[in-house]
């Protein structure tokens, strides 16, 4: 009995080590982003802080990776979400967008945050400070809408 347990544990451990070797590309961290949304716009402090804590890990080049996010199989899921998140909206490239694209994104942001679709539930589960209460949701949506209305 003891032996079977030991062998299973060893097999699992070897498997765990082996999957670490499977190569996946990590979305790069870039420190200086001259086209960044926050750098290029005057944003109220409360909104800035929501953007940083609730959005920027997936929607900018300034992703902060928790230690467990670099270990397979978790990293496969995390990297995939970050790649998709940056593709849908990357605030590090904000100033390069046309006014039309900015507008479309801002209305999307207002709707998704208001509906609770963003930040993603799996992200909130691991980043409790990213969770937005209804006041923050309203503040954020109103800010995004009015910025889009003024463009």
């Amino acid at each position: 009995m003891m032996r079977i347990l030991t062998i299973t544990a060893i097999i699992l451990l070897i498997g765990f080590i082996l999957i670490q070797l499977y190569p996946v590309e990590k979305p790069a961290f870039v420190e200086n982003n001259p086209d960044d949304l926050i750098i290029n716009s005057e944003i109220p402090a409360n909104i800035k802080s929501i953007l940083k804590t609730s959005c920027y890990d997936c929607h900018s080049n300034e992703t902060i990776y928790p230690w467990y996010s670099n270990i397979a199989p978790v990293k496969w899921l995390v990297y995939k979400d970050i790649i998709e998140g940056r593709k849908a909206a990357n605030f590090s490239n904000w100033a390069k967008l046309s006014d039309d694209d900015k507008m479309d994104l801002l209305y999307d942001m207002a709707e998704e945050v208001q509906d609770g679709d963003m930040p993603m539930a799996v992200y909130i589960a691991n980043h409790s400070d990213a969770k937005l209460d209804s006041i923050q949701k309203n503040e954020f949506s109103n800010w995004a809408e009015s910025l889009a209305d003024e463009l």
Binding site: D100, M103, D104, Y107, A148, D149, L151
Partner: peptide
Amino acid sequence: YSINKIASKLRK
């Protein structure tokens, strides 16, 4: 809807 929001939805 604001005029910009209408424009955005039309694009979409």
